[in-house]
């Protein structure tokens, strides 16, 4: 099989990816880290490709990270956000994408409030589609950068104990992490208020803790602290932010109970003093900013691998190698 088709056409989630595909992305991200350290932070790999960043939801980090990744690969990029575009006039997702495609684009990076939006789009347009977060479903590039950051810090992923802390129910980051971590052999736990736990999550083979202390006693190597998603929170999930901090906030006092240092991660943006204490977020075992740095490298790897992954290119590759 040619290398061009290893990832397929789209990246919509980690649930249906193989461990080999995930490792390929992480390994490919390694050399891309160095590109961002060069005096000229740019390589011509995707020269002439046009990429549309279609963001139907607010995003700073992810959108900028994708844009840096695209520009450092020399692709041409266009940003479209829901407000100020024809989306606000009622155009459907497929019509928006088909119109963009009529302008001869090569890839779409999409963030959308509806779960499944990226896959829906991928089945209807010929361009590569990359999911930058769809509803409560998946955020695959975030999970990939988390995996890369864990691997950088611990030198491995298999056998590590990783606990996702907080609002698991509304978190696409949690879902993608869960798939990725279990596929690469980590032990995964979740921890948070019962009201913010999806029903039946134990069936996915993860431990469930009702208290942060229990996760620490379990021997967690990594705590990935999820953002309390205030904008998604309907009333009634938690009594108050102050109580949430008191019970589930990741604080130095709680971490002191662990005999070993625990690596602290957060996908951002942080609510300091709610799900995470500032002394932890800025502490010596926090790799939160490394996650941001790795995000660009991982997204470069995904773009690069998918750029050669379209079916007709794979066919051309086969013809070329004969």
């Amino acid at each position: 099989m040619s290398a061009a088709s290893i990832l397929g056409k789209d990246l919509t989630g980690l649930e249906h990816m193989t461990p080999e595909q995930i490792r390929l992305i992480l390994d490919t991200a390694e050399p891309f880290k160095e590109v961002s350290e060069r005096p000229i932070k740019k390589v011509p790999a995707l020269r002439g490709k046009t990429i549309v960043n279609l963001f139907f939801e607010a995003s700073t980090r992810t959108r900028i990270s994708f844009e840096f990744a695209e520009k450092r690969l020399s692709a041409d990029t266009v940003n479209v956000s829901a407000t100020g575009s024809s989306v606000s006039k009622g155009e459907t997702l497929v019509d928006t994408a088909r119109n963009l495609e009529a302008m001869r684009i090569d890839m779409v990076v999409i963030r959308h409030p509806s779960s499944g939006a990226a896959e829906f789009l991928g089945r209807r347009i010929a361009s590569n589609v990359i999911n930058a977060g769809d509803g409560k479903h998946e955020h695959p590039t975030q999970a990939l950068l988390d995996l890369l950051s864990i691997r950088d810090k611990h030198g491995k992923i298999a056998g590590l104990k990783v606990c996702l802390v907080g609002d698991v129910l509304h978190s696409r980051v949690a879902r993608s992490n869960l798939w990725g971590l279990t596929k690469l052999g980590a032990e995964v736990a979740v921890c948070g208020p019962w009201t913010l736990m999806p029903r039946g999550i134990e069936e996915l083979g993860v431990r469930v803790f009702g208290r942060v202390e229990a996760a620490i006693e379990w021997g967690a190597d990594v705590l990935n602290v999820l953002r309390l998603q205030l904008e998604r929170m309907e009333t009634g999930f938690i009594p108050s932010l102050r109580e949430y901090y008191r019970v589930f906030g990741v604080t130095p006092e709680r971490l002191e109970r662990s005999p070993k240092p625990i690596t602290i991660m957060h996908p951002g943006p942080m609510n300091r003093g709610v799900e995470i204490d500032s002394r932890v977020a800025d502490g010596p075992h926090s790799i939160i900013l490394d996650q941001v740095t790795n995000g660009v490298a991982v997204r470069m790897a995904v773009l690069y691998l998918l750029a050669g992954g379209r079916a007709e290119l794979a066919d051309a590759a086969k013809r070329g190698s004969e």
Partner: peptide
């Protein structure tokens, strides 16, 4: 690898 002019014909080289 990232400066090759034939990404379209040979596909990406996975190991850089």
């Amino acid at each position: 690898t990232l400066y090759r002019d034939d990404l379209e014909t040979v596909g990406p080289k996975p190991v850089i």
